[in-house]
Simulated assay, not measured.
Amino acid sequence: MSKQVSISVIRRLPRYYRFLGELLKNGIHRISSRELSSRMGLTASQIRQDLNCFGGFGQQGYGYNVEALYGEIGHILGLDQNYKTILIGVGNLGRAVANHMTFDGRGYELIGLFDSNEKVVGDVVRDIAVMDMDEMEDFCIKNKPDVAILCTPREAAQRIADKLVELGVRGFWNYSHYDINMNHPHVAVENVHLGDSLMTLCYKVKDLDSPDGPAEGNKNI
């Protein structure tokens, strides 16, 4: 089913999941699409269209059961899969990702950290000792990770990605700016471009000063 769903809908699912989780924390167990739309800044029609891509979750005159919908979206996203994950590149960025990202509960189990810098190898980050890159192949053969987080320089990323695909890794959270899908079109890749996000914010701030007011696109999606 996921192949028939547009990427724009898929990118909204984590936001639905987050908002529904907040509703549950606040003791709200039932909500209409109209009420949800006012909280999220989406139209009720958009919400219904998005959720109908995966089946009928609401009931006429009742709305949505928050707990049930929260669980369904979590299942759709695969948050119950617990994919084995390794991180390559434990510099400032990689260390920040390892330390501050909540992997459990988002579908992942971080099992290994790797770096080529001998000054970093042996450091313990998130209760995991950083291993040398020379140990990566044996580790992958033994532990069979599903996903890799690449926090490496671009020039090293192609070689590392090629090797990881060969070792069975099928998903990449990619900070390296190297286009993994160019050589491996059949693996799942989520590219993270922090600079692009910062430039988009720059446009939105500039747009606030427009004589006609902020554009329609100057909203969260």
Rank of each mutant, 00 (worst) to 15 (best):
I86K: 04
G78H: 03
G27F: 01
G122R: 11
G171T: 01
V147L: 07
P214Y: 09
G55R: 06
N65H: 12
G122W: 10
K219T: 14
Y16Q: 06
L51M: 08
G171H: 11
A161N: 06
D127S: 11
G56M: 02
K84V: 01
A68Q: 13
N191A: 15
G91E: 06
M1E: 10
E166Y: 12
L167A: 03
A98C: 08
L164G: 00
R159S: 14
N191R: 15
D123L: 14
P153A: 00
I28F: 00
I221S: 11
N117Y: 06
G74P: 04
T43K: 13
M40C: 02
K142R: 15
L113H: 03
H186M: 06
R39G: 03
E72V: 06
G71K: 12
T43L: 08
F139E: 00
E166K: 13
Y178P: 00
R126E: 05
I76T: 10
Y108W: 06
R154A: 08
G91Q: 03
K206W: 13
K204P: 00
W173G: 06
V192M: 15
L198A: 15
D50K: 08
N82P: 01
I111M: 12
D50F: 08
S37K: 14
H29R: 14
R39E: 10
R18H: 09
F103S: 02
E190C: 15
V205N: 08
H75D: 08
G107T: 05
C202R: 15
C151W: 02
R159T: 15
Q158Y: 07
G71N: 14
L69W: 03
V66E: 03
G91P: 02
R39Y: 11
M40E: 00
V187F: 12
K119Q: 05
G71C: 11
E190P: 03
N92V: 05
Y83V: 00
G63Y: 08
E118K: 12
A129E: 09
S38F: 09
L93Q: 12
F114P: 01
A156M: 10
S116D: 11
